[in-house]
Write a protein that binds this DNA or RNA. Structure first.
Lengths: 193, 193
DNA sequence: GTTAATTTATGATCCAGATCATACTTAAAT
DNA sequence: ATTTAAGTATGATCTGGATCATAAATTAAC
């Protein structure tokens, strides 16, 4: 796995504290970021300060390549949502990795394809579907890595920031879905049935 | 360029007539589609029949790889918007191309990165911005390959289908932008100032 | 274990943009 | 050159979800 490869090749992780900004919009990309431990959120923020969550990245994932590869400045903030160890791989080293390891290159293509899938799905939702449908789709998507009768580790605010809705709306819809037995609520937590 | 490579290697284009459906949602991906000539639109359609334009592809571009590479069925329809010659490259052949031509692999990574950029930008718009802002951003994006005082070859309906708005709303906003001299209207056509 | 900060909850009001309806203009088809 | 279809235009009404306000329940911090 890639992180191990990097550590074996003497790349050192940097420490980011919860809340630290890793990069911000407008900055010129110089590196790709591999998460050894921790979690980050990638968000765009509009003029009113409203956040939209473009993605959440956790241990063993990486982020920041698209901007680097197309040589455009970042669109989003990336912020550590908990203390994290992140290996910052300089652009040139990343390109070398791609060149020298076709299997990694292939993996990257698949990763990018997955992200495109998610974004296409959400675009369709935001463009055409009403609040309830959006939340249903989003929850179904998030439930896919959650066991039965386990909880979703996501707040209503985060669901709002992923779906383009407001917290109050999300809260009302979750309640409704719970009434319709599509999910369970346990002390506020959303539980997969 | 890739199309030339394919033709030189004896891949033959298929003909699709205007309106022909190249693939549809749910179908299992078996190929990647290279456009020799013509144009296609990729659209998702919701239960009410409302379309959302996920992308427009023209000569020398290709489409359909993400679904193939992550091995998931298609989300969208792809429809020829004019008579088109399209080289249908079977999955295995496409994978072979990727393996044998690292430069192509690199190009693909960049292409996917570009598409991600566009989708991230539009997600932010659909999630957080009002109609006028969305249309401004979208038009600015489309104007980037349009000369000064040249027209945008896009209808109001298409702008609506790319922005998640309704035609009437787009028409009203375009009119307003024209009043504000942000663009010119010539017999209905949108002209870059 | 107590205080502070998040998160969840719920009602009341408001408004941007959807929807409906109808007409005009431009481009395409025959 | 006409008919037909597609696209643009504009007013009137309606509505889903935003916004505002206020409080209760959890969780985190000290």
């Amino acid at each position: 796995m890639t992180i191990k490869y990097l550590l074996d090749n003497n790349f050192k992780p940097s420490l980011y504290k919860k809340g630290d900004v890793i990069y911000e919009p407008g900055a010129y990309p110089r590196a790709v970021y591999f998460i050894k431990s921790g979690k980050v959120r990638m968000v765009t923020v509009n003029d009113d300060g409203k956040e939209f969550i473009q993605g959440i990245f956790k241990a063993n994932e990486y982020f920041g390549e698209p901007a680097l590869l197309v040589n455009k400045s970042y669109l989003a903030y990336t912020i550590a949502t908990q203390d994290s160890e992140i290996i910052v791989v300089k652009g040139e080293d990343f390109l070398k990795m791609l060149k020298e390891h076709p299997d990694f290159s292939m993996k990257l293509i698949q990763t990018l394809s997955h992200r495109l899938f998610y974004k296409s799905m959400m675009l369709e939702e935001l463009a055409n579907e009403h609040a309830e449908h959006r939340i249903r789709t989003l929850i179904a998507y998030l439930f896919k890595d959650v066991e039965h009768s386990q909880e979703l580790k996501v707040t209503r605010q985060q669901l709002a920031d992923m779906s383009g809705l407001r917290v109050e709306t999300v809260i009302r819809i979750i309640k409704k879905l719970s009434d319709q037995k599509e999910l369970k609520l346990l002390r506020g937590k959303i539980i997969r049935i």
